[in-house]
Nucleic acid binder design. Structure first.
Lengths: 100, 100
DNA sequence: CACCTATATACACTTGCGCTTATATACGCC
DNA sequence: GGCGTATATAAGCGCAAGTGTATATAGGTG
């Protein structure tokens, strides 16, 4: 599983979003996805760990998850060449609006 | 299938890359992925069409595929808040290097 | 019209993902 | 040590993704 696949899953994006705000325990993250069971969330966290998007620090019996978003650079780097395309499109739209 | 899943597949990223250079016929794209059969590539192109990342223009019996990367903005928008994190990390690294 | 080329679809198969239930592990507290 | 809480792993299942072979569609050419 690579970073692209990891991020393709909506629940995992949700988890990353929460961790972007602040560190959270596994329990908090489980509570944040009421439609999923605890093991399901645990598996998503494992995937995020394995691709290096989060890290864990044990704190007693809790596990504190933290964002480690460096891996997202890979996606950012990939998307970069395409950015100019929709910038051009946007320019064309702005041009059109200006012309009126 | 959404944009994130569409882009999670390496062969589809490969196709997008080629289309970023220039428009191509379906046949050219099939030739660009020698490990896949023609129908397999055709299905990937269908997926990219359905999520709006490419568009097709018939030209006789050929079909000319063109990039329509606006949908990638969705990914770009999503990734934006995370960018500051690895920027900070980078800053920290630079700081460390400067300190030495 | 008959035949060829270019591309898409149908069908069947395999594999891996995401899920749930059940269980293990590990720490905290009495 | 015994029990409760927090988290991870195991086993099993359904389903959708990706693929190949075979076939359909449609346009080009003689």
């Amino acid at each position: 599983m690579d970073v692209f696949e990891a991020v393709a899953e909506p629940n995992r994006r949700h988890l990353l979003g929460l961790l972007a705000e602040r560190d959270r325990t596994a329990g908090e993250l489980v509570d944040s996805l009421p439609t999923l069971t605890q093991p399901a969330v645990s598996r998503h966290l494992r995937v995020l760990r394995e691709v290096g998007l989060v890290e864990v620090h044990p704190d007693g019996q809790r596990r504190i998850y933290a964002l480690k978003p460096d891996g997202l650079q890979q996606i950012d780097t990939w998307i970069t060449p395409y950015r100019r395309y929709w910038r051009n499109h946007l320019d064309a739209l702005e041009q059109h609006l200006e012309d009126r």
